[in-house]
Simulated assay, not measured.
Amino acid sequence: MKQALVVEDLAEVRDWLADIARSVFPEIEVHAVGRVDEALAVLATRRFDLALVDLGLPDASGIAVVRALHQRDPQCLAVVVTIYDDDEHLFPALQAGAFGYLLKEQPREALAAQLLRIANGEPPLSPPIARRVLSWFGQARAPVPLVPLAGEPEGARLTERETEVLQRVAKGYTLPEIAQQLGLSRHTVASYIKQIYRKLDVSSRAEATLEAARRGLVQ
């Protein structure tokens, strides 16, 4: 591994992923960006051996980056690193050409261990994702449609986990406190907060609190 691309819009999480990549592959040079359009621009001029790609990016779905990598440079190993563990994100990513799929909620050591599997030609998959894939192929189901290149509209419907995070944000808990209460890493909670703000079209804790109150999550 000589060149790696990290696509993640949260600076703290972006640095965290870049640091993990360097710890696993000491000789690797990491190029990090925060948007899909920036990633596509870089791909037009450079080649990469590894890419760590978030899905919830501000201008489009990270699946657009995975698909572009697969089409332009099939030798590059695109690994999704996300908070989403549902079929609607997992299978479109795999269909687009993702080599692996990791969940941010795992400790740093677990993520590093999964990436080390690449040296043996094994796809890095978080255990819950591996079980979901096996379960999927063990049942007869309709294929999941690919996410369009333009991105995926998310609307304002929150998942159960996002609702839990929003409620704690509205109650004034800090990011580390929320992480401790929910048994998640601070990077995972930061990603949830990012998605919540994007879905609700808010940009501050005060606005998020008002929306939480409107939904009856706080009094």
Rank of each mutant, 00 (worst) to 15 (best):
P128M: 03
A98K: 01
E88M: 06
L134C: 13
V81D: 01
A113Q: 10
I28E: 02
G138H: 06
L146Y: 00
L52C: 04
I193R: 07
R117P: 09
T209K: 00
P176Q: 00
I83D: 02
H89Q: 14
L69C: 09
A21T: 14
G151S: 10
V147C: 08
E152N: 12
P26A: 13
A150T: 13
Q219R: 14
E164P: 02
I193C: 05
K104N: 08
F91N: 03
G62E: 09
K2W: 00
R141L: 09
L158V: 10
T174K: 07
S203H: 15
L166G: 00
Q71T: 15
A41R: 15
G183R: 03
E162G: 08
A190T: 02
A130G: 14
A39W: 04
H89A: 14
E109P: 08
G155N: 03
L103Y: 06
A4P: 02
G183W: 02
V30M: 04
D54I: 05
L200Q: 14
L149V: 13
S135N: 13
Q180T: 01
A60G: 04
Y173H: 10
E38L: 06
E38G: 02
E211A: 14
A212S: 10
R205K: 15
Q181C: 12
A64G: 06
V218F: 12
D59F: 13
L50A: 04
V81M: 02
L210Y: 12
A4I: 03
P128L: 04
R198W: 05
I63H: 12
L52M: 11
L158K: 08
K194W: 15
A110D: 12
A112W: 05
S185L: 07
D85L: 09
L57E: 02
A44V: 12
G56A: 14
A21N: 05
G56Q: 06
G56P: 01
Q106T: 11
L134A: 14
S204K: 15
Q180A: 14
V202R: 09
A18H: 01
V165I: 15
V42I: 13
V42P: 00
L166I: 01
S203Q: 14
V13R: 02
E12Y: 01
R35Q: 06
A32Y: 03
E29F: 11
T159L: 11
A64Y: 02
W136I: 07
G56Y: 01
A51H: 04
A51C: 04
L217C: 11
Q180F: 04
P127W: 07
T159W: 12
E177A: 14
C76S: 13
L102P: 03
W16A: 00
E177I: 10
G151W: 11
S126H: 07
L52Q: 06
A96W: 07
H31C: 11
R72V: 12
R131M: 11
P92G: 01
L77W: 09
G121Y: 09
T82G: 13
Q95T: 08
A93L: 05
D59H: 12
